[in-house]
Every structure is written in structure tokens, then in C-alpha cells.
Design a protein around this nucleic acid. Sequence first.
DNA 1: AGTACCACCTGACGGC
DNA 2: TGCCGTCAGGTGGTAC
Length: 265
Amino acid sequence: MPELPDVEVMRRRLEETSMDRPAERVEVRDGDLVEGSGPGEFADRLRGSRFLSSRRHGKYLFAETDAGPWVLFHFGMSGFLRHFEESPGEPEYPKVLWHFREGGSLAFDCRRKLGQVRLVPDPDRFVEEKRLGPDALEGMDRNAFLGAMSGRRGMLKTALMRQEILAGVGNEMSDEILYQLRLHPRTGLPSLEEEQLAEVHGVMRATLEGAIAAREAGDAGAFPGPYLLPHREEGTSCPRCGGEVRRIEISGRGSYFCPDCQGEG
DNA sequence: AGTACCACCTGACGGC
DNA sequence: TGCCGTCAGGTGGTAC
């Protein structure tokens, strides 16, 4: 799940449910997911601590603690956060849990174990060391976007997904952005005029905002106009023109599009 | 510079 | 029912 919109919604849930509550106990059920320190050390450092604030950069979520460091959450392909009050609400694959003193728990769930949790002294430094580009939603105005995209030879989709160019767009959102633009997934950057690139920027922002709103509302209808996200399946019909949605492979990643709206390539 | 491909890891799902 | 191949939205490294 987790691309920028998903992570942003998780950040908001974290703000609503888990701030300023001392953790009675931090439970590491799978130390494989904890990077940079032993699982025991991680739990010990955070015992009794509270989350003070949160930040997001691209697909990374940071939570400031009064223990000093920030907790970094990265979700891989199958990770998410869930706050629950009673044990029946516990998700299926919780790897790290915060049990709050006043009740309730926060679970970092990660079925495929491709995510990670770690302590970092400073989010800005982490972003710099990771060489992440500016956040696709908060950190890129039109000119920055044009600057980042101009002079590149590759595909638009690939560039949108490269986290060192801009952070937050993944495979699924890149497909959605191309769908909204009615561009084929293999569209090359050199074929786009500056005016079209500016449109890409606007549509990217609107698509990310729309996806956040849709996820917040928990229903697809919140998205303005037809969108591809619920139709990522070969053979389903395009919500815009009724054409047949197809899947092609780009660098080993599944890419879904409507040949009728977006061209055959 | 850009692309393809593999690896990481585990589960869900469809076909036979 | 069970086995098997395929696919999954993440990143990172290698080879061309």
C-alpha cells in the first residue's frame, strides 16, 4: 500500500491516536524489522517515552519522541500502522507495538518484512543521507519540478518513481498520474513540451491530494472524477471510456493502463 | 544516463 | 483438498 498518500494518512492517524501518551512498554516481536540497534536496545530506549510530533517525507514517516531520537517508519510493500484499543483489534502481522500506559496500542504491521523501524537523531539528516529528493507534495513547486525533469531522456513514469528526484510517488500512483494525464506508461520525457510538464506537475499534485482524500474518506468516491486505482486488474473496464484495462511490464513492475484513453504506445 | 533484472520476504489467489 | 506458479504498491545492487 504505502506510497505518499497512504503514509500521509497514517501520519494523521498517528497524530490523532498516539501523541503525548507514555508507552508503558514497547514490544519488539520481530527484531528483523528493527534496524540500527538491537531489538532490546530499541525497546529499552523507548520505554516510558511519548510521541511529540510527526513528519513525513515521501514514503518515510518520522515520529519525534521525548526520549531524544525520532522513530523512523518505513513500510516497504506491506507495512502499515494501526492503533487499537483491545486485543481483538490487533492486526495480523504486528512486528513492533507500543502499549500505552492509559490503554490502547499502536502496531507497526508488516507482513512481507520489507519495511523497517529505527531510531534516527534527525529526520533532515536522514533525508539528506538517503539522498531523497523533495517531497512530491510539500516540497516541489512548479519550477522545481520543471528543473528536476528537464533534460532527462528516460520515461516519465520512471522519473516520477525515482525517490532521489522527488520523494513519494510509487508504482501505483505513477500509473494513476499517467492515467489522469491520458499518457501511455512508456511516454518518454523528451516528447513532452515544457507546458505539458507543467501540467504533469499540476496533475501529480491533484492526484496525490485526491488519493489522500479518498483514503481519508475510506471510499473511492471522494476522488474527483474517474480514477484507475480500483481497477488495477487486467480485463476490467476503464471507468472513463469503458475500454479494457491492460497490464504491461516496465522494468519488471506491473503497469496498468487503458489503451483506449492512453494510447497503445 | 537509463533500463532490465535479481534479491530481499511472506502470503494470497487462481488454475489444475 | 493440495500443489504450483504468479503477483504484490517497497528499496538496493549489478550488469549492459
